[in-house]
């Protein structure tokens, strides 16, 4: 046993945080999460924020994305990615209900590097949009053109059924008073798309041969990749009438 291990044992332990402390911290965090535009990257539009639900579906690949206003970006050349193998794909068929909500609209694509456009009119203020991707780590772009600008969101389809908080797009004023037209792109994990700090640090449409994922760049990325047989689905759930 060395000094570091000994030190770890010698320093008095601390009790776990009290439930009150956890609650307070979580409340502060929730307030920050719901805080609007101030936390967005500079240069982005000031449109609404839309959080799509990340489902917890058994054996399904689900995803959470958040719509944020985003500006257009010019496409640039990318390096063709290596083609990944497509093992036996898990089902992407949506369950009939999700958190007590029923299917309002659903579409399935048999290929990635492809898009689906959904038109739907919510019947309630409780709406969840769930994507299920057969290929773990698939990358998703969701976008909706609105009168006040383009709203975009990114996400990753993970195989673990990650469950995200049900967020508040449906709290948007007038949510149920109009028809929504939302386009979803799904790309394979090896698509030439910038992520993390690389995307944040890139001040152009593309850096190092990889795109910043956007509505503008999605078509070019898809054209470069070509469609791949990796099924995915997107489903809009809504409160029962």
């Amino acid at each position: 046993m060395d000094e570091i291990t000994l030190l770890g044992r010698a320093v008095p332990d601390a009790p776990p945080p009290s439930p009150q402390a956890v609650t307070r911290a979580r409340a502060r965090l929730t307030a920050a999460e719901r805080r609007p535009a101030g936390h967005r990257p500079p240069g982005r539009g000031s449109g609404w924020t839309w959080a799509l639900a990340c489902a917890a579906a058994t054996a399904a690949v689900t995803l959470a994305v958040v719509f944020l206003a985003g500006g257009p970006a010019a496409p640039s050349p990318v390096t063709p990615p290596t083609v990944s193998s497509a093992p036996s794909a898990p089902s992407v068929e949506p369950p009939a209900t999700y958190q007590g909500l029923r299917i309002l609209r659903s579409e399935t694509s048999q290929n990635t590097a492809a898009k689906i456009t959904l038109r739907f009119r919510p019947t309630s203020a409780k709406t969840a949009i769930v994507l299920r991707c057969s290929e773990p780590g698939s990358l998703v772009l969701a976008s909706e053109a609105r009168d006040d600008g383009l709203s975009e969101a990114y996400g990753v389809c993970g195989p673990d059924g990650t469950r995200s908080r049900f967020d508040d797009k449906s709290y948007e004023p007038g949510w149920t008073s109009r028809t929504h037209t939302v386009t979803f792109w799904v790309f394979p994990p090896d698509a030439p798309i910038l992520s993390g700090r690389d995307a944040h640090d890139c001040d152009r449409a593309a850096c190092g041969g990889k795109y910043k994922l956007s509505t503008e760049s999605a078509g070019a990325i898809a054209a470069r990749l070509g469609e791949r047989p990796q099924p995915w689905s997107v489903t809009v759930y809504d409160s029962p009438r």
Partner: peptide, 27 residues
């Protein structure tokens, strides 16, 4: 569960990240 377009997605297969789901980071 918040992602910014500027951040882009995290492509780690099966991994959640602060970009997607911060409540899980907290938990």
């Amino acid at each position: 569960m918040i992602a910014h377009p500027g951040s882009g997605p995290q492509a780690g297969a099966g991994e959640w990240s602060p970009h997607e789901d911060f409540s899980r980071v907290f938990d």
